[in-house]
Design a protein around this nucleic acid. Structure first.
Lengths: 330, 330
DNA sequence: ACCCCTCTTGCAAGCGCTTTCAACGGATGC
DNA sequence: GCATCCGTTGAAAGCGCTTGCAAGAGGGGT
């Protein structure tokens, strides 16, 4: 029965050396004779010793922790990004500590305090509502996706949502659709607003009426928004949703109304979350390269922590054509 | 411009008291005169002081951290459980520190080491492959969902998967189905195996042939498993999937084969993840009360940490009837 | 035989906090 | 007026670790 948490002193005693030597062996911070190295390693092994990150952090002033603040663990979009990001961090000495803001600004601020207290060395923001205000005096690098952050140590991974939304709208128009509703949301960050802008631009250029309804970026809101869309614009032939979850909700509404997709109504989403390819019919949507985003964030994090300036990855939003859009009678 | 991280000593100096007094004020561990309290509070405010959890942890020997080991941040099943769990912990002094095992045993063991090193005061296992072996000497309470853990400080939240699977199978049989395939998986824990058992039992009792194929608990595997199912058993009229993601994958296969759900093939899932209600047709599935599970785990955690024995919550697996099953010709 | 270097090692301070213990001041009781 | 007691407070030790510094041990050169 080994003791729960042996200390460096016990290891030292057992190996017949000083704690300093143990530390040096474990961290490789100085030359130590062969025999002592062996003795220390053996003692470590026998005792099942693991240094306390708390004590190490205190002594070195470094935490090797990076904070990841995200909206919600349950999100099918941010969840996978987080997964890819943590995987990417695996091979580094840095450990992610992920905290959800639960879609609430005060919670996000609390979470921020928490991370600050834990002396994270960098911060990653995934779709939070935090802005420069709260982040100003942080003094650590801040990376963000899906929102813009500013400051000397800030770096945002921004894809061109407006362009992608513009193209998605054009895609529908090119297939003969003119009565296109966009399901946007007041929730969410800049990216959602940019999608709305892209949609508006495409409609304006084509001389078409912009028809916008609002959901909450989740299925339920998509359902309600679709209902509203058809109440206000009964002749609608296509729905362009600000994200896939919204599209799923809308899809259900259409199903319940006996409207077929794509025969009666075409549907385009945004994000291409894992399940979109498995919808019936498979959802045509703007693909955000989720895994690549996570990886890019991980790489950027490493670069930033190494004092470098991350090179912006070349990531594109691309429309993936599946089966939820049809050409309307010419 | 405030300093990044003022220490208790600076607060003390500014307030004209000793560090000990600051500590006492902040923790309420002893009586302190009104005026000093005020002075301390003001200094704290002005400096933006926040105690370092590292130092506190070192000094008190407590971390107030609980480890949550889960398979995957991207999981639409465990993600929401984690979300509910962290939300439930919000009001407590305890902070969750969630680490993914990425479906790999070695990673899970690494993650376990990490949590151990961080001196978590309790551990929650969400669908990991860890067993008593690795957990034996931990010395802290271990809670689990979806797997059984043993030991004096262990507590598992287990729902009766076998019974639920039995009933789901019966549900199909009651609607005239006799050629029912179960899509199980070698991946995953005890709960998946119990579902298989429940299915087998129902089939055996009815004198029907057990038809089992295997996926990976994700969509892709469900797709492939469905293909295999129809290759081996072309006359199948119903699919019972070990989880919803598997059902989604199978659903896509059916769609591509021109098999209608539920007209040609009935489909039943397991879990009732958020998106199941939004499938086309809405998926009939065995509901795991995801949110309640998260909450129950949170409560149990609090109980365990308070030295009590958690009362097992009354949680049931219930079949939710939606639209993916039909009655076959009598 | 002596001196100087280099390599290895231990000592001790210090990271930021808590907590025990003792001391202090004033109020009380005689 | 003196002993006593209580409530407040600060000094100091200690949590487990790292690291600058200096000492000791050899080894080689002269």
């Amino acid at each position: 029965m080994t003791k729960a948490h042996p200390t460096i002193a016990e290891v030292a005693r057992r190996a017949g050396v000083s704690p300093a030597t143990v530390s040096r062996v474990l961290n490789g911070t100085a030359r130590v004779s062969q025999e002592k190295v062996r003795a220390v390693l053996q003692a470590v092994e026998e005792l099942g010793y693991a240094p306390s990150p708390l004590a190490q952090g205190l002594a070195t002033g470094r935490s090797y922790a990076v904070g990841i603040l995200l909206s919600d663990f349950a999100s099918p979009f941010f969840g996978p990004i987080l997964e890819a990001l943590t995987l990417e961090l695996e091979a580094t000495p840095y450990r992610p500590i992920a905290v959800p803001g639960h879609w609430s600004l005060v919670r996000e601020l609390e979470a921020l305090e928490f991370l600050k207290a834990h002396r994270v060395e960098a911060l990653v923001l995934l779709g939070t509502a935090l802005d420069g205000e709260a982040l100003g005096e942080l003094g650590i690098p801040v990376l963000a996706f899906g929102q813009r952050v500013e400051g000397p140590k800030a770096w945002s991974l921004c894809l061109d949502n407006q362009k992608a939304a513009y193209e998605a709208t054009r895609y529908l128009m090119d297939r003969g659709h003119t009565r296109i509703v966009h399901v946007s949301s007041h929730r969410g960050g800049m990216d959602v607003r940019e999608r709305l802008l892209g949609y508006r631009k495409a409609m304006r250029e084509a001389g078409l009426e912009a028809r916008v309804v609002y959901g909450d970026l989740e299925e339920e809101g998509g359902y309600r928004a679709a209902a509203e869309a058809f109440r206000r614009y009964p002749d609608t032939t296509a729905l362009f949703a600000a994200n896939d979850q919204t599209a799923f909700g809308a899809r259900l509404y259409l199903y319940e109304q006996g409207l077929r997709v794509p025969e009666d109504v075409s549907l385009v989403g945004f994000d291409d979350i894992a399940l979109s390819a498995y919808q019936i019919p498979p959802l045509t949507t703007v693909r955000q390269p989720i895994q690549e985003i996570g990886i890019a964030l991980g790489r950027a994090l490493r670069a930033v922590l190494a004092g470098e300036v991350p090179t912006p990855p070349r990531l594109e939003l691309t429309l993936v054509e599946r089966a939820s859009v049809r050409e309307v009678g010419a």
